[in-house]
Design a protein around this nucleic acid. Structure first.
Lengths: 185, 185
DNA sequence: CAAATATGAGACACTAATGTCTCATTTACC
DNA sequence: GGTAAATGAGACATTAGTGTCTCATATTTG
């Protein structure tokens, strides 16, 4: 029987836990189960019922975040477009998830699924950079890891700008593309 | 009497502790006093002798790092030069300290001295950005916080590139300036 | 409404880290 | 070389977090 009869989780409870965990762990990687429980508005025991150990919870959050990112990218991945447009689409999709993203950097999990998802993103980015170079949007003499790192950082910078309220999503997206290709001059 | 008679610290011991703490805390913000002691090659008790609590140690490291950064910037700050050259000098001085720098982001201390040092850096960067705009190296329509964030991120990216061995300090510095002003096209 | 079950609250044992202390040993300095 | 002080090693109490369990309550489902 695949359906557990006891302690199935209520959707609302799961939602509350996951959202709180993302938020709290993002603010403080060393956050405690109690803090997460309080922020989620559930009992600490409920956390342990559905995520037996703290590591289980962190892993689950990691998997969820990385899958969200990949899903967002995949949803925007239209093959025919020019590379710059795909870059813009990618930024557009990923920037609003900046908070989920930063979690992955800080609280790195050793979970193989997270690692795999991360590798998927990396390959995606590398392929995109290659296309950008092919189309002359990025100079050939710039090392690809530098470009990938720059894209990564721009997502974070853009999300921050939005969070701090001085740019809209669209403005931040455009500025990210512009910063990468043309620079700020 | 300002000179403590008992438990003055030996320069070599202090050096070992500080270096180990920077290294270890950078790799893992939640590192334990034991880990730091082991890495420093000193007894755990010695750590507590000179830094009564863990917070004291973290604060001290934070202060030291931020002061190192400010000193490096100050040493390079020649007033007469064009803004771009000052940007390059700043990168040149700060990039090799990337590991000290990243510590400040992760393991944020509430210590007022750290905050103050951080603010100093921020003002410095803001003034530089203003000059860059005046001289046409950065477009006026780009929000200054974006530029400052970009500079910050570039320091980290450049340090990473050096740490991973695919760029030299000079190459990374040049590429950082180029990325900021001209972009990667 | 009634039965089933997910949740909340709290008690509990266990572990890991912190911070204090003592004492023997090593190091620096005169 | 001798003295004073810094260090290392380890014992110790204390604290904070984890993970388990139980039982009463709230919620869903039929």
């Amino acid at each position: 029987m695949n359906t557990p009869r006891k302690h199935a989780i209520r959707p609302a409870t799961l939602e509350a836990i996951v959202e709180a965990a993302v938020r709290v762990l993002n603010a403080n990687a060393g956050a405690t189960m109690s803090e997460i429980a309080v922020q989620a508005g559930v009992g600490r025991a409920t956390l342990h019922r559905h995520f037996r150990t703290r590591d289980d919870l962190v892993s689950a959050i990691g998997i969820r975040c990385v899958e969200e990112m990949n899903a967002a990218v995949r949803a925007q991945a239209t093959a025919g477009q020019p590379a710059v447009d795909r870059l813009r689409s990618m930024f557009r999709a990923v920037i609003p998830l900046g908070d989920r993203y930063s979690f992955l950097g800080t609280d790195y999990t050793d979970d193989p699924k997270v690692r795999e998802g991360y590798r998927t993103q990396l390959h995606w980015a590398e392929a995109l950079v290659e296309d950008l170079k092919d189309q002359g949007d990025v100079a050939r003499d710039v090392p690809s890891p530098w470009v990938v790192a720059q894209i990564d950082q721009l997502v974070w910078t853009a999300w921050n700008a939005i969070a701090e309220g001085y740019l809209s999503v669209n403005e931040a997206t455009d500025l990210a593309v512009r910063t990468l290709t043309e620079g700020l001059r």
